[in-house]
Design a binder for these strands. Structure first.
Length: 492
RNA sequence: CGGGGCGUAGCGUAGCCCGGUUAUCGCGCCUGCUUUGGGAGCAGGAGGUCGCAAGUUCGAAUCUUGCCGCCCCGACCA
């Protein structure tokens, strides 16, 4: 019957895949590691994109677009960045195909068309962008330069997972240039705040703001700030990053400016990004065994109306009433869909919209018409209630608001229960295996220790939280002195 | 790249070990009627290079070899 989805308990990965595929967000494609984002999934991405885009513009950024292909000689200029991404780059080596003389109907790479210089398909755009900035920046008057681009990037991952890690993904990447380190650091933190606000207020997903340990830092950055979220299986997910790049890229690409005193200096840089991975985060943060649970502020459909009728006469009467309700809701800016498709029956629609995570469902039948009420079901709690038609749009507005808050509170309570302190190695290992979530523990501050902990437990330092309280303690692995706790977790 | 699983209609599957009529069943799809407050019922119907390629054989979904693809777990990573 219908679309079966795995339960979280039985098979978490399968549950996740089922929600994506059966919920209509995406499909597997003919290309290894790449997915097709279907209209419903893309509508969700568009909503996220629109909110973020406005936030970027409100903080003074402008959009631009840079090429997909990056000449290898540019790509390799910033050494750390190049080396960090080298092993996952797709590379264009030829520019032409030709008919294969040995096999009819097939094409082959034309060996004559070999490029003199290989082109790297961008895994990130710092190189091409900084090469461009060199021509745009001469004076302090050209600064700050605040640019964002919405783009696709390719990272040749060994193992992919729908939305969480695909070989090609959509994202935005901000790249800014500043006259001073302080200003660049302020920008880095500002954008981290934008991401955190977006995650919490729109996605309904609490995040921890922090800074990465040197091991986990973006290749080429001096500091990587991040927001970390917790998924329902107790694994952490990096949901967004904001990097302070220092003068690394300015030096690599020779981007200098004259200050007021006519002194030459390299500019200071930041970059920051979030990707379609956020959709994966959204799915895993709230959904249940019946399907997706989408936050009202991002849901492609916020309210669906399902008619229940016997015969054309009833249908007509319902249609008329629904037209009024729809126009009232639309006036309030609510995304509403009236599903009067006659090919499926009400029960099927109920299940389908639950699977798709539509926050509110309104059922309306002859009985309701007679009583001047509608049946309203909220997706998050599955609670059903009769609402009077009088003042319905007010009730729905406040219900959507309530759902938005309620799913945030639920996720937030879950996270609070899953941040646990560990004070020695046994506790740490036991917590990881039996409870998971974030584990707050002391660490001696070295990359070697972090590597060792990762080898032993697969847990990594997710972040050193901002405004972290300072306290004396001993590293859980080495017993060496430590001044603060950091957050460990197994992560996606 | 290592380990595990899988590939039969749009989807999910039986058959394979032990080769032999017209490849099973369910969902979905088409037509008609009856239905419609939690994934409708009945009747009729359409839909298949059994992942691909060789081989063994009178005969291959089934046996052999090679290849391809996908999923899950791990290492790498956002």
């Amino acid at each position: 019957m219908g679309k079966e989805i795995a339960s979280r308990k039985e098979d978490y990965s399968q549950w996740y895949n089922d929600l994506i595929i059966k919920g209509g967000l995406a499909d597997y494609s003919a290309v290894r590691g790449c997915m097709v984002i279907k209209p419903y999934g893309f509508a969700l991405w568009e909503n996220m994109r629109d909110v973020l885009d406005k936030m970027f513009k409100d903080t003074g950024h402008q959009n631009a677009y840079f090429p997909l292909l990056v000449p290898k000689s540019l790509f390799e200029k910033e050494e750390e960045n190049a080396e960090g991404f080298a092993k996952e780059c797709a590379v264009v080596t030829h520019y032409r195909l030709k008919v294969n003389p040995e096999k009819k109907g097939s094409l082959m790479v034309d060996p004559e068309s070999k490029l003199e210089e290989e082109l790297v398909i961008r895994p990130t755009s710092e190189a091409i962008i900084w090469n461009t900035y060199k021509g745009w920046i001469q004076s302090y008057r050209d600064l700050p330069l605040l640019i964002n681009q919405w783009a696709n990037v390719v990272r040749w991952e060994m193992r992919t997972r729908l939305f969480l890690r695909t070989a090609e993904f959509l994202w935005q990447e901000g790249h800014t240039a500043h006259a001073t380190a302080d200003e660049a650091i302020a920008e880095t933190k500002q954008m981290l705040d934008v991401y955190a606000t977006f995650a919490e207020e729109f996605m309904g997903m609490p995040v921890i703001k922090g800074v990465k340990s040197p091991n986990e830092r973006f290749a080429g950055a001096l500091d990587t700030y991040c927001i970390e979220a917790l998924m329902q299986d107790g694994k952490a997910l990096q949901a967004g990053t904001s990097h302070f790049l220092g003068q690394n890229f300015a030096k690599a690409f020779d981007v200098k400016f004259s200050d007021k005193e006519n002194k030459l200096d390299y500019v200071w840089a930041t970059s920051w990004g979030v990707s379609t991975r956020l959709i994966g985060a959204l799915v895993m943060a709230h959904s249940d065994d019946d399907g997706l649970i989408l936050p009202p502020k991002l849901a492609p459909i916020q309210v669906v109306i399902v008619p229940i009728y016997k015969g054309d006469e009833q249908k007509k009467a319902i249609d008329e009433k629904v037209a009024e309700i729809v126009s009232e809701l639309k006036q309030r800016g609510i995304k509403v869909k009236y599903d009067d498709n006659e090919n499926s029956r009400p029960g099927w629609k109920f299940a389908e919209y639950e699977l798709k995570g539509v926050p509110v469902r309104i059922g309306i039948g002859a009985r309701d018409l007679a009583n001047s009420v509608v049946e309203v079901a909220r997706r998050d709690t599955k609670e059903k209630k009769s609402y009077p038609m009088e003042g319905l749009s007010d009730s729905i507005v406040s219900l959507l608001d309530d759902i938005q808050k309620s799913i945030y509170n639920k996720a937030s309570a879950f996270r609070e229960q899953n941040i646990t302190k560990a004070d020695n190695w046994e506790e740490f290992v036991k917590l990881l295996d039996e409870k998971a979530g974030f584990i707050s523990a002391h660490w001696n501050g070295t990359g070697e220790t972090e590597d060792e902990i990762k080898n032993l437990t697969k847990a990594t330092i997710r972040c050193i939280p901002l405004n972290n309280p300072q306290e004396e303690g001993a590293c859980i692995l080495t017993g060496q002195p430590s001044k603060e706790r950091v957050l460990f977790a197994r992560a996606y």
